[in-house]
């Protein structure tokens, strides 16, 4: 080919790395360095309010975690929160994606509406649901009363379980669109011949779903599971505004506890240890995710 004969001042290798250099420098400075530094801080007693007591204490912060009630409780809250949010999101997203995959009047409108929660900042999501769940004037109370489903207004967020469930519901509303889009993209790749064949075989709707749709959706579903697990695990904005972690510590997830530890108690050492536990767990999940993409061949360049 003629292109080969041209003079090439730089090999592709050098050129590519040069092109990547700016992004790599920024990432190294602003992510790699802080992460390493945060590990260093987690090995110290480091409280902004008592700077003179700062000292290197090795793994003591981590050792303290094992008997730290606040930490263990937050870890449990986070785990259950992930399970509830994930379960609801996947089921709702799957149904909505299946609906959007059909042809019907108003499909475009529904797709646009589905982007609405995605565009909404987590903080606004939190304050929106606060006005809806409000005990005295909330829209949920009003609606359920008018429909005759409840007699009196309820204080939805005052019991620990109630607050937890309603916080999860608010989180689901916010993260739903993302899963829907990924599943919808997966659905649209299913060749229609498969459905035709199944129809010829007189497979019912349920059979078609189990035998044709589900196997094809396995991969997008796994991606949704992994990414939504990570999102729910580090959920912060909505919870912070909706319940602030309360009542008691019923909705204090690990991310919330970490921010409280740092912002309120200025305990940077312990806060960094919390952060590193979160990082380690997230990293484990993302290794699974990347392995998955890798197997699918998403990485061919």
């Amino acid at each position: 080919m003629a292109v080969q004969a041209e003079r090439r001042p730089l090999g592709d290798n050098a050129k590519a790395w040069a092109l990547n250099a700016p992004a790599m420098i920024v990432i190294a400075l602003l992510i790699a360095y802080p992460i390493a530094y945060s590990f260093w801080v987690s090995l110290q007693r480091n409280n902004l309010k008592r700077p003179r007591a700062n000292k290197f204490i090795g793994l003591d912060n981590y050792q303290a975690l094992l008997s730290d009630q606040a930490f263990l409780s937050a870890l449990k809250v986070s785990a259950v929160f992930v399970l509830v949010v994930l379960g609801l999101t996947v089921v709702l997203a799957l149904i909505l994606a299946l609906v959007l995959n059909e042809r019907f009047r108003g499909r475009g409108l529904l797709l646009s509406l589905a982007l609405l929660p995605w565009a909404m900042p987590g903080v606004v999501n939190g304050l929106m649901w606060r006005t809806i769940f409000d005990a005295k004037t909330g829209a949920l109370n009003g609606l359920l009363t008018q429909l005759g489903l409840i007699d009196d207004y309820h204080a939805w967020l005052t019991s620990g379980t109630g607050a937890f469930l309603f916080t999860a519901l608010a989180q689901v509303w916010n993260t739903l669109p993302f899963s829907v889009i990924i599943l919808l993209a997966g659905l649209s790749t299913i060749p229609s011949e498969l459905y035709d064949a199944a129809t010829v075989d007189r497979a019912g709707a349920v059979q078609r779903f189990v035998q044709v749709t589900l196997p094809w959706l396995l991969h997008p579903l796994l991606i949704v599971l992994i990414l939504e697990t990570m999102n729910a695990f580090r959920a912060f904005d909505t919870i912070y505004v909706l319940t602030g972690g309360g009542p008691g510590d019923a909705t204090t997830t690990i991310a919330l506890l970490d921010v409280q530890t740092v912002l309120t108690f200025t305990d940077f050492g312990l806060g960094s240890a919390y952060a590193w536990v979160i990082t380690a767990i997230t990293l484990l999940i993302s290794v699974g995710y990347i392995g998955l993409l890798y197997r699918k061949g998403n990485f061919e360049v």
């Binding site: 990432i27 602003l30 802080p34 992460i35």
Partner: peptide, 27 residues
Amino acid sequence: LKFRGSQVLLMLYLLTRMVPGIAIIIP
């Protein structure tokens, strides 16, 4: 461009995206 290490680099970018904000907020 076809270049050596491109897959690793792409993976590294993705990995940095996975880093939770809370992990770097203190530093």
